[in-house]
Design a protein around this nucleic acid. Structure first.
Lengths: 213, 213, 213, 213
DNA sequence: TATGAATGAGCTTTCATTCAT
DNA sequence: GATGAATGAAAGCTCATTCAT
């Protein structure tokens, strides 16, 4: 369900398509980051990619396709980087590794993530649901790892807390991408450490009574 | 510094201005939420507000003004609701109350917050910095409360952890606004409780060794 | 033929109409001079006149009416000032006086003349032809005076030269209004003297002694 | 000083730019003459030029650019036609030729000149000063020729008279463009002859005393 | 009479997309 | 395959004019 959308191209040569689209994505990310999707013109994208507007349209059908290609390429990278973890049995160690890989990935592709989160709402319905689905997959990865930790007794959490914590981890990733201006005193490693510690402390502790008790 | 921007209007009657702008904001939020700022036309805003395009422009100068009015009205509400806390001396109780008020506020104005966070980048430079400043003020409120808890010994945290936790609280608010679709199984009260518990546990625990140690 | 156009007003009190229109004309001339008819808004005219846009429209029907009122008031002044000459029998002396009066008038009402000549093409057909007719009357006055000078032997000119010279005199008046920036080294009296001398020399052809000498 | 303004075009082919702009100018002059710059819409200009509104804006940036192109092309023609005279040593013969060429030029491009003089005030500041400068150059040409005639004894004139006469010649050119409706009984040759004769007579004569002397 | 809020036709300009070369 | 000139729908905004108060 929600398979990768094929972006039509009138060019036949597959390797050329890939090359051109890569140029396109690189240029587009910079522009989208700077001015947003709507304020960026297709001409600008073509220019930044190094070819003419006519050529641009040989490799896409609509401007939104460019945005989709950007989002899609991000998730290709996510998969490349996190696929190993996908098969491993969950444990605290695997979880910690997953968090580290995920946040490092976001750090490496900060611009791309910002663009994706900022602009994905401009995608056409089906492309949007494809991207959203990728997001859900990510959250589900954390959910699975956490659940397995609960199952093997390493962590104590209600199922609802697992859901919440997964979203939490995911959203903290967005935070790193979006709010780096506010977190410029932190290195990515510090950030990872703190997030990890935070999570594990939050989960491990005896129930602490709140509100005066 | 960064004073409220006056949006010029060619109408003189102040109370009428307020009334019309309220209509405008209400209509605009719905539309911006639905289609985003750029895909919404000024004519649609006028129509949703219940008056003509000409009348719309009697109360604003540019389309961006509408977005600013939306953001500004949100922060007016924020201030109305959180101003009491601003003067209180920090303590765990006050902090917990602040979290509750803040997340309840976001819950009440979900659409408005989503729009603000999604679209504020489309504001003109000075308006954007005004809005960003409001955001910083919010984070600073949490920071102050946390620091005072640290000072009075209720909480153990390094200054860096205080900064991180403040951003964390802030971003979790965004999460509630943005990801309600993913959290539809949670009530706002559950959400508040979990976030609060999470935070306090994370802060209170003895240092727990991570990574196998 | 081409009678004064009545500008409709919904106000009854004639003296009030006159008062308001005078305010209007004074304000409008300044604005039209500065920004031209098209770039001036009716609101600006109302404001410059010292009353509201609603009141403005109690005294005129369209924006073009304002322009007409300006042009009309100029020719009222022209008539007031030159009517005496209209009845006198032509002679070199009368001609010289006419030139002097005419150029002095233009000097006194420089702004008004500039506006009229620059903007009169924006008048509606009938108003335009009324104003053009006034212009023709002016030229005709010079023509009559010249012709009578020819008839009484004071000047030697072919009928065609009379026509040309009349237009010449008229156009030199425009020049004084329009090109004062280029003629800032000249006083109006110098200008009058030179124009007069120029004309009379030009007409004298064979050395004809003027003024009896 | 006051160099030709480059009007930006997004089209690269220079010869195409020239061709399209020529179409544009031709169409615009007709329309501006008929209805004035402000009453003419850009769509009408495009249509008159024979292409779409989108294409129009491939060759200009703003509506005012069209007006500038009109003015500029007039002065290109002026230069083409009068440049020879620019280098010649002044003499009565050269002066007479200059007058003839100048008035003939105006006769050939009557519409263009009318438009330029009527509408140039709608140009943006820098374009206006460029055009005004061209005008000053024209007057200066006459001034130089006259001064040289004075220097070589062919003509007797004070420096002030030279200035005035130069403006006079220039303004008479405007007259021929603007008031042809009033001068329809004259051919351009008659006009030239009369103006020339007028000027030379005015200048050549013994000083004739005016007003009583 | 005076006011000024309301209206909407109409303007300039942009830009995604096409297609002949 | 690559190019870029051409297109026109659609957007933001203005302003002359009206009319209820």
């Amino acid at each position: 369900m929600n398979k990768k959308r094929e972006i039509a191209s009138s060019v036949k040569d597959e390797s050329l398509i890939e090359k051109r689209r890569e140029q396109m994505i690189r240029g587009a990310v910079t522009l989208f980051k700077e001015k947003g999707f709507h304020r960026t013109t297709t001409r600008e994208i073509a220019k930044a990619a190094g070819f003419s507007i006519g050529t641009l349209y040989e490799y896409i059908r609509t401007k939104e396709d460019v945005l989709y290609l950007v989002c899609d390429s991000i998730y290709d990278e996510v998969h490349t980087r996190l696929d190993r973890l996908d098969i491993e049995q969950g444990s605290i160690n695997v979880l910690v590794t997953a968090i580290e890989h995920y946040y490092t990935l976001i750090d490496d592709m900060q611009d791309e993530f910002v663009v994706m989160y900022q602009e994905s709402k401009s995608l056409p319905k089906d492309a949007l649901s494809y991207v959203l689905n990728k997001e859900i997959e990510m959250v589900a990865l954390f959910e699975r790892l956490l659940t397995q930790c609960v199952d093997n007794g390493e962590i104590k959490m209600t199922p609802k807390e697992v859901v919440m914590a997964s979203h939490h981890l995911f959203v903290q990733g967005q935070m790193w991408a979006f709010r780096r201006w506010a977190l410029r005193d932190f290195t990515i490693q510090e950030f990872i450490d703190m997030q990890t510690k935070f999570l594990l402390q939050g989960m491990a502790g005896e129930n602490i009574s709140i509100q005066g008790a």
